[in-house]
Computed example of a mutant assay.
Amino acid sequence: MTIDRLDVSYGDMWGSHEGPTHPDPIPSALAARRHAAGMSYAVLLSSRERPLGMVERWPRGRWRVYLFDDASRRAQMIDFEPFGTDRLLASRNTPLTEGDRETLTVEGLSCPAPDFGDWQVFAPFLAQQGHEPAVTVVLNDVSVHEGAGPLRPTNIERLFVPGPRDTPDGPAVVELGDAGPLRITSGRLAVSDPGWVAGPRTVAVPPGEYPVTLSLLRATHEIRVAAAKVTFSDAPTHAWEMTLRPDEDPELLGEGEFYGVGVDTGTVAFMDATRTVDEEGLDEDVFLPLSSVDRPSVELPGTETEPNLIAFSAGWGDGSYPVWTGRTEDGQAACVVVDFRLYPADQEMETPGGTGPSPA
């Protein structure tokens, strides 16, 4: 069959995903922004809802092409390296079907290095799996719509309003906990896993001592930290923003995605940006004292040269969690919140005579 038209869709890198569609589809506009930023993404080339090829854009100008057989299975993989300023040269051509693992020849396999959208350059390789391209192949964008964009800070204040909540694990109650005052001496707050303090998320704040408040979600047999907040001003929060590192661009995020604090020890900490941590003492001083029964936070006291550190359990444990900075009307930091996303922040709260909480 001659292929004269290819449907084009975009997504995140597939990894070990074996299906015939994107596991995480993204809009073409987002893929274009990632292309311009040198980031990775995947392009699926299909015809009549059958996948024929998948193109992965890798760092440093490298590309990988997967070819699908008639059963919509990835049957062949071709890796391309930059060659000169405007060409790609195949470095490996590998069958992926059972019983045929010998690398195929790469002699003569090359193509122009594509600008974003120039996917016709990969069409000739479809013939290696019997999908014969026409002299002219028309591309049809069938990617998903742009959507609502990155995760938004919806009703963050409600995380710290006591009362009943509906959660995926059943009803629970929010209580507020005082984790003590945090001392900032350098003028920068840091938010980090205390076991991995390199590269924290930081916010400029005036030096001083500031209260740390925990939103505690209490169920029948345990208590979890749903959110944590350090407050720098009595002025009301006028706007919320995602707390970003200098090299992070929210325009490169898909719908509902966020840049957050990475957690690998089940714990997050507020600290001064100059604070150092003795990793050998963390088990005894932080991780073992924390308890989902009666101790959701712990303080590492300051020393003569360093301010204190307040650590708290991270919701259900390891993962990545959004960090929001609330700003006053004049742009100053009013507070910083880590949301562990144990329940929807925008759900309606029960009031006397009301209908009870309902997820938005």
Rank of each mutant, 00 (worst) to 15 (best):
G180S: 11
D7A: 11
D79L: 08
P352L: 09
G356Q: 06
V138P: 00
Q120Y: 03
S186N: 08
E102V: 12
R5P: 01
D70Q: 02
L288M: 12
T303W: 08
K229F: 03
H238G: 11
D118L: 11
Y41A: 10
L30A: 12
P207R: 10
G256A: 11
G177I: 06
L216S: 01
G180Y: 09
P112I: 09
S47I: 04
E350L: 13
P124W: 06
D247W: 13
A311F: 09
P171A: 07
D86L: 10
P124H: 06
F125T: 04
D339N: 13
D285V: 15
I78R: 03
R57Y: 08
D4Y: 02
V138E: 15
Y210G: 02
P59G: 05
N93F: 03
D166W: 10
G266L: 12
G61T: 09
A172Y: 08
R158W: 14
W63T: 03
P95S: 05
V144S: 11
R201D: 07
S292D: 14
R158F: 13
S313R: 14
V323M: 07
L104D: 04
N140C: 09
A235S: 15
P25S: 13
P124L: 05
S291A: 11
T94M: 14
P344L: 08
E18I: 07
V205M: 08
D318E: 14
Y210D: 03
M39K: 15
Q76N: 08
W63C: 02
T276F: 06
P133F: 02
E329R: 13
R33D: 12
V268C: 14
E280G: 13
C111M: 15
R74G: 00
R48E: 14
Q332L: 12
G319F: 10
P194N: 07
M13V: 15
D247F: 12
C111R: 10
N140T: 15
D100W: 06
F340G: 00
A198T: 14
T136M: 10
P206C: 08
S91A: 13
H35S: 14
T136R: 13
G84Q: 09
A273Y: 01
S72H: 06
P296H: 12
L300E: 01
S9W: 05
G256F: 07
T267G: 01
A226F: 05
L252D: 07
H238I: 07
P181A: 06
E98A: 13
R275M: 07
A32F: 10
H22D: 08
R341Y: 03
G256N: 13
V230L: 09
R87Y: 10
P164A: 12
R5L: 14
P322A: 07
P59T: 04
L44W: 01
V55Y: 01
R152G: 14
Y66I: 02
L214R: 02
R74W: 03
I310A: 02
A314D: 03
A273V: 08
F160D: 02
H17P: 00
F122I: 08
E222G: 05
P359V: 12
A90V: 02
L45C: 01
R152T: 15
A273C: 04
P20M: 03
D278W: 09
G130V: 01
I26H: 02
G180M: 10
P25W: 11
V8T: 12
Y321S: 04
T274C: 03
P59S: 05
P246Y: 07
E49T: 11
T237H: 05
D115C: 07
A226Q: 06
